[in-house]
Design a protein around this nucleic acid. Structure first.
Lengths: 239, 239
DNA sequence: ACGCTACGAGTTGTTCAACGATCTGGCAAC
DNA sequence: GTTGCCAGATCGTTGAACAACTCGTAGCGT
């Protein structure tokens, strides 16, 4: 079984083959979920798009049952929305959703700043910052966004709480839905490179107060920016 | 809701008929998940029990595919554990899991105490307290436990954050797995009736400090009690 | 007696085709 | 213009089938 046996004209399959890299040890449903997730966060599937089981399963070369498991995966992740007897569609975040996500983020990230951590635990933060600068050098703003998320997820990982980590993962996945409406990602993501680096500096120096204050500023600014961008772009379509 | 309107001869419903209330508007998979969840939290399926698809789907009268969707539902809820090519089994919590759950609970419940709330928002708390007393009068300790959970979930609902509420729901579902190892539920659940009522009192009086302090004491005590009970009962079987 | 290999039974992973249930959109009647 | 109804499209669920995998065990060599 190679990658995709069939590829009929749907327009999407080419991008899927690249997305569906061989995740060994993962089930088919998980691979399909990975592929769909990529399409969503890349903006190929915009919020509100309806995904018909027949068409998608055919174009991805998997059975409807497997596709349904992938749908359920992504629904629980918050990327898709499932309506009984009506199918699944790409979720669209409301302003209230964005605000709620940031509220939850504050809770988790402040807890992380307050958590005990040794020097080596900060390594992933540094790595994320590095990745961010590298992506910025290449003008790869999607990459900058990814690195930024990795930074904040690594931050929450300092709590060493699997459940908080998992929640953060969900929140960031949802946020990607909000990012796709950003028409100009550069001014949104670029300034945070500097912020992240300084937060990491303060943490390394053991100055939780300063780190927390910077983090608060960052969250405040990012939320406001996202909300205004969202309001201008997302108002016409409700739901 | 007295009788159940459904009564098709499928051979399943003996044990389920009580559990499988006809949730109109729910899919079969969701109903099956409800039934299984009930079996788990009632202790009929103890942690570590392996659930073979063939046997369970036959005894519940649904197809394997539908059962698998139910399994996935409960796996994401944390009640079941899925191992590739080995099937699902009832999850068993480790001491670390219990500690993690309580850590997360602290975060959420303290945030709830600090949240703005009006008088009417406290109504569900009062109702949960009432339900707890009523169940205690009937010596229904499982009912007391349920009321206690409803109290704390209602507490988190004060945040009016759908995501925090959802997280709390997950945490409490997992905690039920820890409860099933409690051999003597009465001394564990009964004292908290008083605590909950006093927390509600303080909240109503607007004294968040006192409410928070009581809550902290409660969480501390409950966690310690659960951990010791868990250690004595759950050590032999690891994983 | 011991350890390794290979085999086979049992279980899970995935696909397929089919049918009933439900939703959607358009047409006709009022 | 509203209402009721019908037909097509889509989802929900089933049952069977086969491939892939796990695990216990019998057989083999040393």
């Amino acid at each position: 079984m190679g990658a995709v046996p069939r590829e009929q004209g749907g327009g999407l399959p080419e991008r899927l083959s690249s997305a569906g890299r061989a995740l060994a040890g993962a089930s088919s449903a998980e691979r399909v979920a990975d592929a769909l997730r990529e399409l969503v966060v890349d903006g190929a599937l915009t919020p509100g798009t309806r995904l018909r089981e027949g068409a998608v399963s055919a174009s991805l070369g998997v059975s409807r049952n497997t596709l349904r498991e992938a749908f359920r995966l992504l629904t629980h992740e918050g990327l898709l929305r499932h309506e009984l007897h009506r199918g699944v569609l790409v979720r669209t975040l409301t302003a209230a959703d964005v605000a709620d996500v940031y509220r939850f983020r504050r809770l988790l990230e402040f807890a992380a700043v307050d958590a005990e951590h040794d020097r080596v635990a900060l390594q992933p933060l540094r790595s994320a910052v590095e990745g961010g600068w590298a992506a910025a050098r290449d003008e790869d703003w999607a990459g900058v966004a990814t690195a930024n998320m990795r930074f904040h997820r690594s931050l929450v990982a300092l709590t060493r709480s699997p459940r908080m980590d998992e929640s953060m993962r969900h929140l960031l996945a949802e946020l990607r839905l909000a990012f796709v409406v950003m028409t100009d990602p550069r001014p949104f993501h670029e300034p945070y490179l500097q912020d992240n680096e300084r937060i990491a500096d303060h943490l390394e120096a053991g100055d939780r107060g300063k780190a927390g204050r910077l983090l608060a500023e960052y969250l405040e600014r990012a939320e406001r920016q996202l909300l205004t961008a969202h309001r201008t772009a997302g108002e016409p379509g409700r739901r």
